[in-house]
Amino acid sequence: MKFALLIRLDEAAQAAEAKAKGVEHPPVSPAYAAYAQAAVEAGVMRGGQRLRPSSTATTVRVRDGQTHVLDGPYAEAKEQLGGVFLIEAATLEEAVQWAAKCPGAATGALEVRAVWE
């Protein structure tokens, strides 16, 4: 089965960290790189991407023939979608194990969702 691990991060905390380091965006942490590589080596990684901050989001909606294009994410929340991994796991349990190992789980939260197949 394929599972999406949706990484929810507190962007305010990330921005503060970037500022402290004097960079515009914090680079991918070595722990994240190690996690992704370990998932590749274990043969479970099926893909994944890190997303730019939600402040760069554009939201598109078509209603009654009208197209609405808005700056910003669909909903304001404390934690925003920061990235996604797609993994192959035999069971939800296995997927949850991988989610718990993701460095994002220690600072934000991971949402584990099975993929329709």
Binding site: A31, A34, Y35, A36, Q37, A38, A39, A100, P103, A106
Partner: peptide
């Protein structure tokens, strides 16, 4: 070490390995 870091659950142990 990278492999061990990537597979670790515990943030304290992850920091130690790093």
């Amino acid at each position: 070490y990278d492999r061990a870091i990537g597979l670790e659950f515990d943030p304290a142990l992850r920091d130690f390995l790093q």
